[in-house]
Design a protein around this nucleic acid. Structure first.
Lengths: 177, 177, 177, 177
DNA sequence: TATGAATGAGGATTCATTCAT
DNA sequence: CATGAATGAATCCTCATTCAT
C-alpha cells in the first residue's frame, strides 16, 4: 500500500471512530468521509462495505485494549491491575475515545477478539492469585460487567462521579468478602 | 378520544414494543403498522413522529416497572426487594419482554420517568434501612447498574447462567462488607 | 387499489416503456419517475425493484401481443395471419412502441409468457394447415426469427424499406418451395 | 509505441473481449484491467474512454470477420461461401467467441467497418452469380439478418439445433424459388 | 378518523475517469 | 509509461412524514 493510502486509511478509521461513537453505528458513511476529509469513494475503496468499516474499528479497539491489558499484566501490580484496566476502559468509553457499542457484539464469538479476552483473562487470574478478586469469579462475568459499564458510560453519558461510584460497587462485588 | 381510537392506540403500542424489541429501534414504522393491523397513517395520527412512539413505549415501560417496584416496596421483604426487582428487570430484558435499549436515553432527565426513579429509590432506602445494602450507595449508581446490566443482557444476549453470575457480583458489591 | 394509484401505475408503466426502449434497460429509474411525473418513491411502491418494473413491462407486452395473435387466429386469413402478425410486431418494434429488448430474455422459460407463445403457435399451425408455411417449421424457430428481427429493427434502427426486404427473405424462407 | 506498450494494448483488447462477452457491455473497466493483468490507469492510457475500448473491440471483430469473408470469397465455392460464412458468424456468436452485441451499433455508418461490409458484399455477389441466392436480395438485408440472428444466438442462447433450424429458414429465404 | 398512496431526502454502493507517485 | 489511489456523480432503494381519498 502506498504511503498516502496508508495515511488515508488511518484518517478514515479515526474519523469513523469519532462519528460512530458520537452518533451510533447508523451514522452515515458520508459523514465519515467528510470528517476524514476524503471523498466517499475512498472510504469504500478501503472498506468495501460499511460493515467492514465497523469491523475494522472493532478490531483496532480490541487490539488496543489487548495491548493495554498485556502491558498491565506484565508490569502492573497484580492486586490492582485488573481494576486499573477496567476503570481505564470505562474512562475511555466516557471520553468517547473508543467504540464500546461494538464491544457487546459477538465478543465471545469472533476469533479476532480472542486475544483481548485472553489478555483480560490473564489480568483476572493474577488478581485472583493475589487475593484481590474472589476465586469464584469467572472471566465471562468480568467481560459482561466491563462491556455493560463501558456502554453505559458511553451512551448514557455518566459523569465522572457516577462512573467512580458505579465502579466502586462493581469492584466491591469482585473482591473477597 | 373515541373507544376505537383508544383501542388502536393500544394495539399500536403493543405492536411497536414487539417490533422494536425484535428488530431494534430502527425497524420501520410501516412494520409497526402492519403488526398492529392498522394503516401507516393511523400510527402517525396517534404518534406524530417515530420518536413520539418510542417515547411512549419508554413511558409504558417505566410505568410498568414503577408499578412493580411500588408493589415490592409495599409488600416485599425490605432486605431482598431491591435485588428481586433488579433481577426481574434484567430477566425481562433478556427475555426481550421489554425495551431496555431505551432505558439509558435521558432517563434522569425525562420528568415522565421520575415516578420510576422514585419507586426504585424507595426500594433502595428500605434495603439500606434493613442493612441489606451499604449506606453509601446512592440511587444514581443503582440506576446505572440496572440499565447497564439490562442493556447487556438484552443486546449481548447473556444466557441465564451469565446473568446470574453477573448479578451476583453486582449484588455482592451493593451489600455491606 | 385506489383510482389514483391505478392511474399512476399506468403512467409509470408507459413512461418505463418509453424510457427503457429509448435508452436500454439500464436507464435509470429516476428517469422513469421524471417521465411519469411522479416521485421516485412512487415508482418503487408500485414496483419494489427495478427488475419488477422491467418484468411488468415484459408481461404487458406479452399480453398485448398474445391478444393480437389471438384475434388474428380467430378472425384472420389462415394463410396470411402469421405473416401479418409477424410484420406487425417488427413494425411496432421499429416504432419504439414496444420493448423488444426484453423479448429475448427467457422467453421460452417464463411461464407468464406461455400464453403468447401459445397464441403464436396457433397462428403457425393454421398457416401450415393452409399450406402457407412449410410443414417442417417449428414454433421455436419462428419465435427466434421474430425476436431477432424485432430486436434488429429496434436497436439497429432498420428503416421501413429494410424491414420490408428483410421480412421478405424470412417469409420466403417459411413458405413451401 | 514501445514494444511493451503494444503488448499491453493487445492484452487489454483480449481481456476486454472476454469480459464484455461474458458479462455484457456494462461490465466494469476494472474487471478488464484485472483480467489483462494491468492497472486501471494503463487501460485508460490506451483507450481514453470506455467507449473507445468498445469501439476497438468492434473494429477488431470487423477486421477478423472481413478476413474470413475475403478468404472465403477467394477460395470457397461461390454457391455456398455466403452460407458458410453466415453460419460461421452465428456459430461464433453462440460460442461467445465474439462480440455480436456490438455488431448492430452503427454498423452501416462507421467507416471503419466498411471493409467488412465490402467483403460480405463480395460473397453475396458471387453467390448470386452462381445462382445460389435470389437476384433481388441486397446486401442490406443480408447484413440485417446476419446481425439479428447472431445477436439472437448470443443473447437468447439458442442451442445448436435451434440455430440450425433458424438458419435453414433464412437460407431458404435467400435461395431462388 | 382511518386509509394507504405519494413524496423526497438520505444512504450504501459502483464505476468511469483523473492524477499523484 | 505504468501504477493504483482518489474523486464524485449516478444509481438503486428505504423510510419518515404528508395528504388526498
Amino acid at each position: 500500500m502506498r504511503a498516502d493510502a496508508k495515511r488515508n486509511r488511518a484518517k478514515i478509521l479515526a474519523a469513523a471512530e469519532e462519528v460512530f461513537v458520537a452518533a451510533g453505528s447508523d451514522a452515515s458513511t458520508e459523514e465519515v468521509a467528510r470528517r476524514a476529509g476524503v471523498a466517499i469513494g475512498t472510504v469504500f475503496r478501503h472498506f468495501p462495505t460499511k460493515n467492514d468499516l465497523l469491523a475494522a474499528i472493532m478490531k483496532e479497539l480490541a487490539d488496543r485494549l489487548a495491548g493495554e491489558a498485556e502491558t498491565l499484566a506484565a508490569e502492573g501490580d497484580p492486586a490492582t491491575a485488573l481494576f486499573t484496566f477496567f476503570a481505564g476502559v470505562v474512562e475511555q468509553a466516557a471520553g468517547r475515545k473508543t467504540v464500546v457499542e461494538l464491544l457487546d457484539v459477538d465478543i465471545r464469538v469472533d476469533s479476532q477478539l480472542q486475544t483481548m479476552r485472553d489478555a483480560i483473562g490473564a489480568l483476572l487470574t493474577r488478581a485472583q492469585q493475589a487475593g484481590a478478586v474472589r476465586a469464584g469469579v469467572r472471566l465471562d462475568e468480568v467481560m459482561a460487567l466491563l462491556t455493560a459499564t463501558s456502554a453505559g458510560a458511553l451512551r448514557a453519558g455518566w459523569d465522572r462521579d457516577l462512573r467512580t461510584r458505579t465502579l466502586d460497587v462493581v469492584f466491591a462485588g469482585l473482591r473477597p468478602r
